[in-house]
Structure formats: structure tokens, C-alpha cells
Nucleic acid binder design. Sequence first.
DNA 1: TCATACCCTACCGAAATAATCAACTATCCA
DNA 2: TGGATAGTTGATTATTTCGGTAGGGTATGA
Lengths: 203, 203
Amino acid sequence: MKLSKKGEYALRALIELGIAQEVGRELVQVTELAGSKQIPIKFLEQIMVDLRGAGWVESRRGKFGGYRLRVPARSLPIGQIVRAIEGPLAPIGCVSQSAYEPCSCPDEDHCGLRMLMMDVRNAIAGILDRYTLADVVEVTLRKMRRDGLPLPYADSHVAPRPVAVPVSAARRRSAAAPASPIFPARLAPVEGLIKDLFEDYTI
Amino acid sequence: MKLSKKGEYALRALIELGIAQEVGRELVQVTELAGSKQIPIKFLEQIMVDLRGAGWVESRRGKFGGYRLRVPARSLPIGQIVRAIEGPLAPIGCVSQSAYEPCSCPDEDHCGLRMLMMDVRNAIAGILDRYTLADVVEVTLRKMRRDGLPLPYADSHVAPRPVAVPVSAARRRSAAAPASPIFPARLAPVEGLIKDLFEDYTI
DNA sequence: TCATACCCTACCGAAATAATCAACTATCCA
DNA sequence: TGGATAGTTGATTATTTCGGTAGGGTATGA
């Protein structure tokens, strides 16, 4: 039940772009997204092709170029990303809701393994479809602020030169929304496993 | 997040052996476990090596030979099987509790993706560690009985010849326990996703 | 002895994964 | 205009894993 490197890097890139957006950074270069050589740059470039193809990211070429989110982070469920990059969430094909295929079920109607795997699929989907990119960005930033860490991309002398960039329609709506409050109603303590993890999680 | 064919076949074989045990069938041949050629026999033989190596299955060679469960089905959580056959349940290495390895986290303490994947890992483990082989066997049999299907391995003229087989200690305890009642307290309606699925599940 | 059925080892091909390589193209500024 | 920067594109590579299959050995009972 592994997330592929491609999936991992795609999610990281999107989270980084979400963070950049939150702190007011307009464009982020692929070298920045790759971090300290932990993600191979050329591989990430290819992944960015897919992210752009999916319509979640847009880019600007040339000097002072880079990438940014094209859709509001809050409108992008993680499950949608994972499905697009990795394929169906279902551990076996007979429980897939997006790409059904028969497996070695002796008889689907009475197959206990199918039922169990449906449970697993639904649990995975329950989490990944519940949380959006914005949620993950928020928790990341929240923990950084809690520990007093400098926020990435907020360092003004490292930022690419501000430019008048053509604004897509999706981007315009995002800019119109105020920054999320730190404790939005969506992540009230009665909801959200990530919230629970944030409260209780220790390494 | 796929279950491999090997994992799928291993689980199916164990479920079949559990069913056989419930209906009183002593030994099951690999051809029976493989079903109508849906599982490749030679591949399944190899998988049975691993299941025997794990101590869950024992076998008898020669004429009237076959396999049977060596441990009580109720003592075998599905998560244990999946881990042994497939490896860690964690989608990425930094959230694995059995096989931790660093990934491309910029900083584990503040990595929102790590937190999310911990959620996913825990959800998967929550299900797979909660239910045992006996639960899956039970739900399978329950649905078959509900629909009036003939139970596999219960056909007496197809059964291998009854033999006095040396009884392992684990097997002796299993034989001493009465057959599970159809509605055990463990699967009361207030618990158990599988129970929920059984009640609500439609294709 | 022969038939049956597990046991063991090795091999194979395909596919996917995880990159890397090479070159092109757009943008800006001096 | 030229050079630097940075995205874009397409192809290639290497490796590993997966999902089997092949071939033969060994134990058991009639």
C-alpha cells in the first residue's frame, strides 16, 4: 500500500506551492520546490507537467519564472490528487469505484476479502477525500508557527522579483478570499483526524 | 495503494482454509484452494511456502495430503498477514511503525504530508488489525448461509479420506473450542465496519 | 511400485518505477 | 542583440519488482 515517489513528490510540490501562496510568494522555482536536492529536479519537472495538465498549477517561463497554484487550495481534495497521479485508491480492483475490475473473487457477492478491502478503500478515501490541500498546508504552517520557525518563501530578499503576471480566473477568486484564520471552523476539535494528530501526535 | 496478487492469493488461501475448518474439512489441496484456475497453482504453492514459514499453516504430503490452518483463525489479525506478505502498511516510510525510513520530508516535525499519511496508515491498520481471519471467514459463511448457498468443502463425497493426523498444540486448542455462534458478541452492530458493510453493502 | 500431492529451486518476461539526458523555447535585462 | 535564467519536451536508461512458469525431488498410502 505504498505511495509512489511520483505521488509523494507531486503532493509535496503542491503543498509547497500552497505554503508559498499563504505567505504571499507569487512564483516558486522548481529548484525551490525540490528542496535541498531531496527531490530530483528533472523528475520533478516531469511531475509538474502532469500537475499543469491536471489544471492545478500554472507556470511562467523565462527569467523570474516559476510555478504557482492555479486553483484554490481549499477546492482540491487530496484524494483527487492521489487518484490522478497514482490511480484508483482501491487495494484490489473489485472494490474500486473509479476503475472496477474483477479479481480472483470466487464469488463477489459472498467474498469476505472483498468486503474487508472495501472497508480499507473507504477508510483511505474517507481521509483523502475529506482533507484538501489547504488543510495540509494549514497544519504545516500551524506547526511551524507553534515552534517559531521561519516560514519558507517569506524571506523577501530571496523572492523572485514581483511582476505583473496575467491572472487566471481561478487565481483571481483565490486572491479575493482573505487568508484563512488559524482556527477555522472546518478544523474544530470535534472533527478532523489531522487535528487529532496535531494535538496528540508525537514522534 | 495496491494489494499485490501475492497478498491477495495468500489471504484467499487462508480464508478458504478457515472456511474448511469451520465446516469440518480436515485438509485442503492446493488445487482446491486455487479454485477454478483463477489462482495459478504453482504460484500459490510458493505462497503456501511463506504461509507455512510464518507458522499459520501446516501441511501433509503424499496421498490424501493437503493444507490446513495451524493456528486458531481468531488469533490471526489480517494486519499481521498483510505485513508479513506485503511489508509495512505505511504509504510512506517516515510513518511506518515497523520499518521506519526517512523520505523526502523537508522536516519531519512539521511535515503536513507526513501527518496525513500517518492518518492513512492508522486507518488502514485500524481495520486490518481489528479483524481476524475468523471474522472474514464468518462474514463469508454468513452471507452464503443467508443466500442458501452450498458451503464449500462440506460435500462429504469430495472430501479427502479422513485420517488420523498428528495434531499440533494450536490445533488441539482450536478443536476444543465450540464453533462460533453466528452472531458473536464481537460483531455486535455497534462495532465493526465489516458488520456495517454486511448490513448495508450492495454492489 | 505407482499415483498422488506437497516441496524446492531456478528462471523468465514484462512492466513499472525512478530517475537521467539532451535539447528546445520563452522571458527579461543590460 | 546577446546572454542568463528557467520552464518545456521527448527520449533513454537502469533497475527492480511482480507475476508468474518450468523442472525436478520427496514423502505418503494403497
